[in-house]
Nucleic acid binder design. Sequence first.
RNA 1: GCCUGUGUGUUGAAAUUGGUAGACAAACUUGACUCAAAAUCAAGCGGGUAAUUCCGUACCGGUUCGAGUCCGGUCACAGGCACCA
Length: 799
Amino acid sequence: MAYNHLEIEKKWQKYWEENNTFTTDVNDFSKPKYYVLDMFPYPSGQGLHVGHPEGYTASDIIARMKRMQGYNVLHPMGFDSFGLPAEQYAIKTGHHPEGFTNKNIETFTKQLKMLGFSFDWSKQISTCSPKYYKWTQWIFKRLYEKGLAKLIDMPVNWCEELGTVLANDEVIDGKSERGGYPVIRKNMKQWVLDIPVYAERLLSGLDSIDWPESTKEIQRNWIGKSIGAHINFKVDNSDETFVVFTTRCDTLFGATYCVLAPEHPLIKKIMTKECQDDVLKYIDEAAKKSELERTELNKEKTGVFTGAYAINPVNNKKIPIWISDYVLATYGTGAIMAVPAHDDRDYAFAKKFNIEIIPVLEGGDISKEAFTGDGTHINSDFLNGLNKQDAIKKMIEFLEKNNLGSEKVNYKMREWVFARQRYWGEPIPIVYVDKETYALNDDQLPLVLPVVDDYGRSQDGQSPLAKAKDWVNTTYNGKPAIRETSTMPGSAGSSWYYMRYIDPNNEKMLANPILLKHWLPVDLYIGGAEHAVGHLLYARFWNKFLYDLGISPVEEPFKKLYHQGMILGENGEKMSKSKGNVVNPDDVIKEYGADALRLYEMFMGPLKDEKPWSSAGLQASRKFIDRVYRLVCGKTNIIITIEDTDNLLKSYHKTVKKVTNDFETLSFNTAIAQMMIFVNDCYKEKYVFKGLMEGLVKLLSPICPHVCEEMWLYMGHYNTLAYESWPTYDEKYCVDDTITIGVQINGKLRATIEVNKDTPSNELEKIALENSDIIRHLQGKQIKKVIAIVNKIVNIVAI
RNA sequence: GCCUGUGUGUUGAAAUUGGUAGACAAACUUGACUCAAAAUCAAGCGGGUAAUUCCGUACCGGUUCGAGUCCGGUCACAGGCACCA
């Protein structure tokens, strides 16, 4: 007897919707709150793939369990709906991206509902709706007012193909993340957010949150803190000076040259006439290289001498100033002191150009390679005899005392380039009056996207918005003004959406502060590991900023984070159309049901692992549901209402315990295995107690909600299962009276003995030595020692 | 190159503080039911072997009465960073 999943699932989805079963009253503070959030999807034209339900099922299980445990649960869903595919569709067809986006949202919503997720759809948001992006713009305005959103001239990642600048996390291996087009460095005036201001707090905050260690490490890496010093160098025969950043100021006596990045503004002021041609040629060539070319060439160092010399501030030695693209304009000060004896890169450069190499540390052989380790200082005047740590300390004291430099912390993380020359994004609410920038007034928000004739780039490389002349030309405080035509990047709307779910329709403010105080932080956040730096870092940044404004009540928005692993195709490769290994969830739902899909994806393996799809595994999951259904509703096992055998009662309580604990740690695969053990046990009995079946149905209901509601109804309950109390267990049934323990001889298992629980070790030893298998194995041997651990093992050492 | 993970049957995978390796599934084999098939129910199932014997958690070594688990080294794979001074 199999159940009709098509009928049952539709029926319960309709029931939940009509009864608003999962609508959360956010004003109900009478119960403890639990906020469980999924990373919301980009509504692509392809619809859901089987990877989506994996994370969504996991969060849904937690949401459903928490409701049954008496929490007031907020479990919302929405759409990250600004983005490139919709824009490209618009360029191709000439249709507005909004229609395309809304159609996709509709498809996604329908598909998500077919999977039976207990989302509160009344809280749904979409980042491309003016109702929503009004507040994205409002936050931008606050950033602008605090000086954290600013227009600066800086080298940016420019992608010619996409016609836009990109943030660092949108560039992978010198190519654009979307499309894989080449990216070059270009000096441009751009809107940026000054995220480095928050670098230290973004770093230290990681210690207080329950996130995967790998993700924290990626963020730490990205922030890239290094502690060092700034040292001032004078240019010989000139009033010019420049500053270098170094983490090894202790090696300053070994500095035999300096290097400036090709973009360094000082170069043109200090180069000598003799060297001028070579220098300008080198700068020109460096500018033309793409990011990829620059990094690919990292084996062979290139550079030219400027003709100028710097004065080493500790010994007044004259050292040449070179330029080379191995020094990055965007890190530190764009200038370094080179200590070839103790830095691999400087060593390679010095060898190539025959520059002096002076060792200042003992150890290593500088005729072969640079020595980058620790050692005793030599050739270093007042540092001689000191180790690295002490020498750094003393050098910093010296520099600061003589005004030659200071201790300095540097971060790899740079400003977040916040403007895109695209149509389908939030307009930046800025106007220019005589080149001065002004943010729009709050009552002028939202600044709605204007209508344009076509969505392609403007001829001058500007955003398509520049084509809307009537929109661009405006007034500000009665003066003629022009609007900023860039839009915000994709990560803008997703940087704060978890706040808006709490109060999605508020027209007066971002969200009611009383509600924010109650509902934040997000207790559990589930989504892909690919957002480790982009979204997850930006969201933390915006939250910290809003925290400083007194809007966010918490320093960290996501208390616990979990990444689901990717689901691969049946052949173990990444699912893709070209490989023909894509599994469509709609087909699975039709053939096996949403419950089977949900169960299967949770049983495949640990949630965080990458794992291949298996249609046999899917069928097996459906088989298990059928097996439970037959047990509960079938005729072979009669449900009676007397207490059952001890056997089954123990199995039941152990199951409740394991399932509850495993759900809590998101170990769904082992929780399901335990339910299977219990069901197998039930099948061995002639009768099963109805109460135990009710408990089983409750335990399974977060994973397979439709069929469990159906079984619950079958058992004579006319209310939804969603708010029934979660089963409890009695510890006394979870322990066995007798246990089987192993008996080893010299660490090898030779027999097992059945003993009462907590049998003392002297007793265990006696029983073990009386065992016939053990006696046989001990023949001709002498017992040296017996280790007997209560409830664990007996090990006999014999020779 | 650096950082972080992961290596267990034919397959997906289990295994508290070190304590019977392979739970639960899949595949496979067999039996029951059936005219038959499917479904279902039940049994077996790491490898070698005549065996109740030996081998076995990537590899080498160590600590321990005892190691998948701890320590040192090696290899492979995945992810991240990468001329970051």
